[in-house]
Amino acid sequence: MRINCPICGDRDRREFYYLGASDYLNRPAEGDLDAIHTYLHIRENPAGVTKDLWHHEAGCSSWLVVERNTSTHEIHSVTLASEVTK
């Protein structure tokens, strides 16, 4: 699998660290324990198109939102997380 980093270009999967679903971008307010539980643990976990967060650890160190298919390993789009959260 290769991921097309918007800054570095097409790179081997080994350069990236996988964090998990892009739910991590929507951090809930402090004190709402149900929301924090959902944020940390509950996952939609689709068999199909998903969005998740990858860190270009061995490259530009950007956090990326990767839209890909979990059943085929096809990658549809790669966006800088900083642009998604703007």
Binding site: Y18, W54, T70, S71, H73
Partner: peptide
């Protein structure tokens, strides 16, 4: 393989 997948096949690394 350390990323979410249902592909029932792994990656080369």
């Amino acid at each position: 393989d350390f990323y979410a997948s249902y592909a029932q096949r792994g990656n080369l690394p």
